[in-house]
Amino acid sequence: MKNRLKSLIICLFLVIAIILAGSMQAPAARYYIDITSPYFKKIPVAIPEFKILSQGRTEKEIALTNKLKKSLPDILIHDLEFCGLFRILSPKGFLIDPQKMGVKTKEINFKNWRVQGTDLLVRGAFQIINNTLLIELRLFDVLKAKMIVGRAYEAPMEDARIAIHKFSEEIYKALTGKKGIFLTKIAFVNKEKKNKLLYVCDFDGENVQKVVKSGDILLSPEWSPDGKKLAYVSIEDMGPALYLTDLLRGTVRRLCSYRGLNIAPAW
């Protein structure tokens, strides 16, 4: 009986110790924007052109690098403007040459940015090696002089936009605690001469890709929950039929063509 009581006391002390240890840990820092607040104001953000880490080995890489130092931050600017939470500051007011300033916390003069009325600062640095984009992106809290989130991406050049969209997603999640829309896709039908075509594109209308081409009328594209397939309606001679296309495999198959109306696919 004494041994049992002793074991219970020891277990009780262990539980209390675990609880106290957990409560003594420093709470994780969280950046949160309450977009439902009536007092919410757009946050001023500075996004200078990205720093070039290496000009490249060929004339083509050098030309592309000089173009990307402006076009890559433009993608990020468009993303953040689209969500309506941020006010992007004009680069005309920046006091430092982006190619001369650093990209890490210790390399940035936050005082200069505070003078310009900046709350958040995004710094990017990149290089191109063998048609592959290597890029570092960081979001800083200028008032606290600390980094909020930082990521490094390696992507083929054709996926450069996706890398920027991914960081936009990281920014939105870090500041609101919610998932953004920057990696979502849009499916739509368009007409080309006598043909109807089913397309998909990024949320911002870029990266348009043709999925299905048909002489029949195409309607009502509907995404699968995993975003890998599209169901749609094709109005054929025998009436409407439901089809399914696998975006990864590039395959199309008929799901059903019963008598009557085969319309409005839903998962």
Results as ranks from 00 to 15, higher is better:
95 L>I: 12
11 C>W: 14
217 I>F: 03
79 D>Q: 11
256 C>P: 03
62 I>V: 13
113 W>V: 05
124 G>F: 02
42 K>M: 12
65 T>D: 09
239 G>H: 00
22 G>H: 10
169 E>Q: 07
63 A>T: 14
121 L>T: 03
210 K>S: 11
54 S>W: 11
133 L>G: 05
164 I>N: 00
43 I>A: 02
197 L>R: 09
118 T>Y: 04
267 W>E: 04
102 G>K: 06
209 Q>P: 01
29 A>F: 14
241 A>P: 03
7 S>N: 14
122 V>P: 00
98 P>E: 07
199 Y>V: 05
158 E>F: 13
170 E>K: 05
235 I>A: 00
29 A>M: 13
185 K>L: 15
251 T>C: 00
169 E>G: 10
215 G>Q: 11
145 A>S: 12
115 V>G: 10
7 S>L: 15
140 F>G: 01
121 L>Q: 04
196 K>W: 11
192 E>Y: 13
260 G>W: 04
159 D>F: 06
237 D>Y: 05
7 S>R: 14
77 I>E: 01
75 I>K: 08
95 L>M: 15
121 L>Y: 04
102 G>T: 07
74 D>V: 04
43 I>T: 07
191 K>R: 14
238 M>W: 05
237 D>V: 05
104 K>D: 08
4 R>N: 10
31 Y>E: 15
163 A>C: 03
84 G>Y: 08
244 L>I: 02
178 K>P: 06
130 N>D: 13
60 K>F: 13
4 R>T: 06
111 K>P: 09
191 K>D: 02
87 R>Q: 12
33 I>L: 09
194 K>D: 13
23 S>D: 06
8 L>D: 07
177 G>E: 12
84 G>K: 10
195 N>G: 14
85 L>V: 14
127 Q>S: 14
239 G>E: 02
49 E>R: 06
226 D>T: 00
108 I>W: 01
206 E>R: 11
79 D>H: 05
157 M>D: 08
70 K>T: 09
250 G>Y: 02
177 G>Q: 08
110 F>V: 06
176 T>M: 15
224 S>R: 05
80 L>D: 06
152 A>F: 15
182 F>A: 04
247 L>A: 00
53 L>S: 15
110 F>G: 05
36 T>W: 05
266 A>H: 11
53 L>F: 12
125 A>Q: 07
153 Y>A: 09
139 L>M: 04
61 E>Y: 07
179 K>A: 10
40 F>G: 00
208 V>G: 08
175 L>P: 01
214 S>M: 12
240 P>Y: 03
98 P>L: 04
111 K>E: 15
120 L>G: 02
256 C>M: 08
174 A>I: 12
164 I>C: 00
219 L>V: 03
219 L>G: 02
14 L>E: 07
222 E>H: 10
57 R>I: 10
133 L>Y: 05
13 F>M: 07
180 G>I: 13
135 I>L: 15
207 N>G: 02
13 F>G: 03
137 L>A: 03
262 N>T: 01
216 D>H: 07
82 F>A: 06
132 T>M: 06
255 L>W: 03
107 E>R: 08
229 K>G: 00
